[in-house]
């Protein structure tokens, strides 16, 4: 009995000692009104109509425009920002057993060289958040999915680690986790035996921020916004400059566009 009493989270003795901030924060996230009908059966309704509680909407399509002329050769600011934000690569203590070809890379800089002219470009390459993503088509369980607002994600809850999406992705945007993980960020879960890729910093986008890579680029080479909104900065820019979709021939219609190549 004494053990059971000790387990009682509502004990007055306990109340006196704890700081209440965490609870308030937590309840603040809980915008739903909830009614318990019977033990185990719960009705949940969305009471609060604040922006983030509505979730992703198909009225938006998040995308990026990358100006390769402004991407400076050797600069890796976007890569480092992504690593810090999402807890991979340098700064993470994980993946210490994996070799360099096994380690995950959510974003990388690719140097493109025209073999005829010798002209080179550097550009950041990551998940292109396709309108018709091959990874989503081939995934047997539906773990690879596209949100209504065009962001392509892996639902690691049901990813079985078959890697077919990695075979299907034309951009080599996906990585497999080859060992146990312990040092994740709370907003970027990563785990052994599942596939992962750029999330377009969905946790930041959902609260109205820009992806970490875009924010970190002080050369102004990366622009983020809503491709569906004709008045957004990115749509206006896309209307005036010539831009390219990588492997447009495959018909994937990427949400990430490039200019200057």
């Amino acid at each position: 009995m004494s053990q059971k009493q000790k387990m009682d989270l509502n004990s007055a003795e306990h109340n006196a000692q704890v700081v209440d901030t965490a609870r308030r924060r937590f309840l603040g996230q809980a915008a739903g009104a909830t009614a318990v009908i019977a033990p185990g059966i719960t009705l949940m309704t969305i009471a609060n109509a604040e922006a983030s509680s509505e979730g992703a909407s198909s009225a938006k399509r998040w995308g990026m425009l990358i100006d390769t002329n402004r991407c400076e050769e050797g600069c890796k600011d976007c890569v480092i920002a992504c690593q810090q934000e999402n807890g991979w690569g340098i700064g993470s203590t994980d993946e210490s057993l994996s070799n360099s070809r096994q380690k995950a890379q959510w974003i990388r800089t690719v140097t493109v060289r025209d073999t005829d002219t010798g002209h080179t470009n550097q550009l950041p390459m990551m998940c292109q958040h396709c309108e018709h993503p091959p990874c989503v088509d081939v995934c047997p369980t539906g773990a690879s999915m596209k949100r209504a607002d065009g962001i392509v994600l892996v639902d690691k809850h049901i990813c079985i680690g078959c890697r077919y999406c990695m075979m299907a992705c034309p951009y080599k945007a996906r990585s497999f986790i080859h060992e146990s993980m312990h040092d994740q960020k709370s907003h970027a879960p990563r785990g052994k035996g599942t596939v992962e890729s750029c999330t377009m910093c969905v946790h930041r986008v959902d609260r109205g921020d820009q992806p970490a890579c875009v924010e970190s680029c002080d050369k102004g080479a990366m622009m983020f916004g809503d491709l569906n909104d004709p008045n957004s900065e990115i749509s206006k820019k896309l209307a005036t400059v010539s831009s390219t979709q990588i492997r447009a021939d495959l018909g994937t219609s990427p949400g990430v566009r490039y200019s200057g190549i």
Partner: peptide
């Protein structure tokens, strides 16, 4: 994850926090 609704009760981040 799928709908982007972040104001939820059952957040594992909340458990851990």
């Amino acid at each position: 994850l799928r709908q982007g609704i972040r104001s939820v009760e059952g957040s594992i981040k909340g458990c851990v926090d």
